[in-house]
Simulated assay, not measured.
Amino acid sequence: MDNQEELRCIGCGAVIQSTDPEKAGYTPQSAIKKGMANDELYCQRCFRLRHYNEIAPVSLSDDDFLRLLSQIRDTKALIVYVVDIFDLNGSLIPGLHRFVGDNPVLLVGNKEDILPRSLHRTRLTDWMRQQVNQAGIRPIATTLVSAKKNHQIEHLLDLIEKYRQNRDVYVVGVTNVGKSTLINQIIALRTGVKDLITTSRFPGTTLDKIEIPLDDGHQLIDTPGIIHEHQMAHVLPAKDLKLVSPQKELKPKTYQLDDSQTIFLGGLGRFDYLNGPHAGFVAYFDNNLKLHRTKLANADHFYQKHLGDLLTPPSKDELDKIPALKRYEFTTEHKSDLVFEGLGWITVPAKVTVAGWAPDGVSVLLRRAMI
Rank of each mutant, 00 (worst) to 15 (best):
R367W: 10
D259L: 05
V58T: 08
K239A: 06
N53I: 05
D20T: 10
D84Y: 13
I72K: 03
A297R: 13
L319D: 12
G136N: 03
H228M: 09
D64R: 11
T254D: 14
M1K: 08
L319K: 03
I221S: 00
V15T: 12
G276F: 02
L366W: 04
Q261R: 13
L207N: 09
E40M: 09
C9V: 10
E54I: 13
T122C: 07
Q152A: 13
E22K: 12
Y303V: 06
N287T: 12
N89M: 11
M128H: 02
P139Q: 05
T125P: 12
T353I: 03
Q152M: 05
K326G: 01
D259G: 04
G109F: 06
Y52E: 12
C43M: 02
G361H: 10
A279M: 03
V132L: 05
H228W: 06
L265A: 08
L243N: 06
K76V: 12
V354E: 04
I137Y: 01
W345V: 04
K194D: 02
S30M: 04
L289Q: 08
L182V: 03
K111L: 09
T75V: 03
A147P: 01
R50G: 01
H292S: 13
D258T: 07
G276S: 01
L365E: 14
I32R: 11
V80C: 11
D64V: 05
F271W: 10
L365Y: 15
D216I: 07
Y284M: 07
R123P: 00
D272W: 06
L366R: 07
S315M: 02
I322Y: 15
S118M: 06
N288Q: 15
E161Y: 03
V83T: 08
H230P: 00
R117N: 13
V100N: 07
K162M: 10
A283F: 15
A369R: 06
K335N: 02
K242H: 15
T205Q: 07
F264L: 11
V354Q: 07
F302V: 04
V82F: 04
M36T: 11
I263L: 10
R190Y: 07
V362A: 05
I226W: 12
C43L: 06
Y163G: 07
A299G: 01
D87E: 15
T19I: 13
Y273C: 09
T125C: 09
E154N: 14
V132Y: 04
C12L: 04
A297N: 11
R138W: 04
L78N: 02
Y52R: 10
Y81E: 02
T332K: 15
I187M: 05
A56M: 09
L365P: 07
Y284E: 06
F340W: 14
H51R: 06
R73K: 15
P116K: 10
P237K: 04
G11W: 10
S91Y: 01
H155L: 01
T143S: 09
P349I: 07
A56S: 03
I79H: 10
R98K: 14
Q131T: 15
N288C: 03
H120N: 15
G11I: 04
S315I: 01
A24I: 11
V244G: 04
N3I: 13
G356I: 11
K351D: 15
